[in-house]
Simulated scan of single mutants.
Amino acid sequence: MDFQPTEDQRDLRAGVRDLLAGRYGRDALRASVDAAQTGGCVDRALWRELGEAGFFALRLPEADGGVGLGLPEAALVFEEAGRALVPGPLVATHLAAGVVPGAAAGTTVVTAFDLGGGLVSHLAEADAVLGAPEVPSGTPVRSADPLTPLHRVASYPQAPASAHTAVGALLTAALQAGSAARTVELAVRYAGEREQFGQPIGAFQAVKHLCAQMLVRAEVARTAVYAAAVTADGTEIAAAKLLADEAAVGNARDCLQVHGGMGFTWEADVHLHLKRAWVRAEQWRTAAEAEELLAAELLGAAS
């Protein structure tokens, strides 16, 4: 079985990266952070552009107006969205394509009960909630990530529909893998620019080791995500989510370490990757849930 992206898949990934670089670069990211202080952070115009590009309808059959691709392609484009830190319920809207009117086209923002405990992200900006008859009211809850506003609702399903959980976990893992790769780039770039004692800090062994560890985490997570996207196996997806969560959180922390005090300032982007990684680690499938699934699979294989 070949887990390497094909030429068409690489072109798709490059196209999405170019789209997001032109439409949601650093200035747009910082504008979203500023806007989130007084209102929503979902850029409706960008949402529609993603819809027009087929981001949400990627896995819909062509007969239904979709692109007709599969999970491997979806993993690639979500990896790029994670790299760019695009805010909003991307996974839920993608899962709602073909089910909720306007989701595939990006004219409808759809969120989901994917956090547990009655927490819902982007509830105030959502037009629909996946699997719910209407958008419920909720109480705002302080979020670690300024670009992932949270609400707590009193009545909610215990979990998203099982048909969505695995795909939701895989696509969230792809977002995490993209963030992990991006923080490697940020750390390496800063290590080459910042000087101490007359030389770039990247020349020091301790910094080299941090960056190398980050690269290993990112590549292992990416490989696991790609493999799970090809097999669509529930156990593989659980492992990919676990590895991607660890890579996104661990790499963001190490990237902060490379940046030193600069990384903790509001002006830097590093802390945004860490805060988003914390929230995503709780979405669709937590580490504890993934570990339970993997343990059950191992016990079953051993019996």
Rank of each mutant, 00 (worst) to 15 (best):
L170W: 01
Q196D: 03
Q176I: 01
P72S: 05
R217S: 12
T183P: 12
P101I: 08
A239R: 15
I237T: 09
A45E: 15
R253P: 00
A224W: 06
L46M: 12
V91A: 13
G15S: 14
T286I: 01
T93Q: 06
A268F: 02
P146F: 02
L12V: 05
A97D: 02
E49I: 08
H271E: 08
A163Y: 13
A104N: 13
A169V: 12
H122F: 15
L20F: 01
L210A: 12
R13G: 05
L20R: 02
Y24F: 15
R217G: 11
H164T: 05
V141N: 04
V230I: 04
S121V: 07
G68D: 00
G102C: 14
D114V: 07
V42A: 09
A173F: 04
H94W: 01
A105C: 02
L170H: 06
R30W: 01
V42P: 00
S155D: 15
S137Y: 06
H209A: 15
V249W: 11
D8T: 11
Y226H: 14
A240L: 07
T108P: 01
V270C: 05
F56Q: 10
E80Y: 05
A154S: 12
E49A: 14
E282V: 02
E125C: 09
P160V: 14
P61F: 00
R276F: 07
L95W: 13
T286R: 13
V91F: 05
E79K: 02
Q257P: 00
G66K: 09
D8H: 07
G22A: 12
G118L: 01
K208G: 06
A296G: 03
